[in-house]
Write a protein that binds this DNA or RNA. Structure first.
Length: 294
DNA sequence: GTCCAGGCCAGAC
DNA sequence: GTCTGGCCTGGA
């Protein structure tokens, strides 16, 4: 995709930017570390950098950054090579539900986030709620990560690597980060990765099914969590995570009630094919923001 | 006090 | 292979 880009001081400005709405992107359930500022912008830390994002009329303003980081990090992170207008158009054809869902979440993009952080974040997400997931991840970062930058008076920390988390005791993790029964899963998964027993990089070259099989060898990673990791870190748009909200919205619009989760996943693949991950995000956001199917 | 939330796991069938 | 109960935590 071609963009009209301006660089001014510490800002990168994407002119006349469509299909990019910060609220839709950062509050659609894929990322846990974006905080809303008083001016409506969002700040987070990724790939060792702190960045602030704001919509300003027709433009998107990225602050606390530069051209080099934009090219090396943020272009890929925000998935700017992908044509979301086209995806929405295809999904909306012959599907009134997705037509409405893509209009509702018109500014959603699927971020390309860091694998280890996604693995641990979604292990924490199991049978958990967003505010608590965010809290645990924040504590883990400030407690075990490195101080990256101070932005608008707030310290931002990197997410720790597997070597660090593999050496923390489950008891300490539970006590400090309030992760509950997920404590052992986090530490054991970190150990498998730190030791080299599990190779995170190899998943980039695998298919969705292969990657899913691999990820499910990690303790705390099942069918839903593995699909989240594949979709949000490994650029596998065929992944179709079925959580309670997707279950509800799929049953409400496409299937009958009390359909088992495995069948819903198969139906997602059948209906949406290699765009299933995008459909999932639009449907999830649509359902959750409006309490559909509950 | 009771219930349950963006699932996983072990055990039973 | 499919189904069920239990699980830390904390807010409703």
């Amino acid at each position: 995709m071609e963009y009209n880009i301006l660089e001014i001081e510490d800002k990168i400005i994407l002119k006349d930017m469509e299909d990019f709405q910060p609220k839709d992107i950062f509050e659609c359930g894929q990322a846990f570390r974006w905080t809303l500022e008083e001016d409506g912008s969002y700040t987070s830390v990724a790939y060792g950098k702190v960045i602030n994002v704001k919509r300003d009329g027709e433009d998107i303003v990225l602050s606390n950054t530069n051209r080099e980081d934009f090219n090396n990090i943020w272009y890929n992170y925000f998935d700017l090579a992908r044509n979301y207008g086209n995806i929405k158009k295809i999904l909306s054809e012959n599907d009134p539900v997705l037509k409405e869902a893509t209009e509702f979440g018109q500014g959603i993009r699927i971020l390309n986030q860091e694998p280890f952080e996604m693995i641990i974040s979604f292990i924490i997400s199991a049978n958990n709620q967003i505010p608590r997931i965010k809290k645990s991840i924040d504590i883990i970062s400030s407690q075990y990560g490195k101080l990256i930058d101070n932005y608008k008076g707030v310290d931002y920390y990197s997410f720790p690597g597997p070597e660090v988390l593999s050496r923390v005791s489950p008891e300490e993790l539970r006590e400090v980060a309030k992760v509950g029964f997920r404590d052992v899963r986090i530490v054991e998964t970190s150990m498998m990765i730190a030791s080299g027993q599990f190779n995170m990089v190899s998943l980039f070259d695998m298919t969705r099914d292969q990657g899913k099989e691999e990820l499910m060898k990690l303790p705390g990673v099942g069918p839903k969590v593995s699909d989240c990791i594949l979709l949000f870190a490994y650029n596998k748009p065929e992944a179709f995570p079925v959580d309670v909200w997707v279950k509800r919205v799929m049953e409400y619009f496409y299937l009958k009630k009390d359909t088992n989760v495995k069948l819903i996943g198969q139906e997602g693949a059948r209906l949406f094919g290699n765009l299933a991950g995008f459909a999932q995000q639009y449907l999830f956001y649509f359902a959750r923001e409006q309490d559909i199917g509950k």
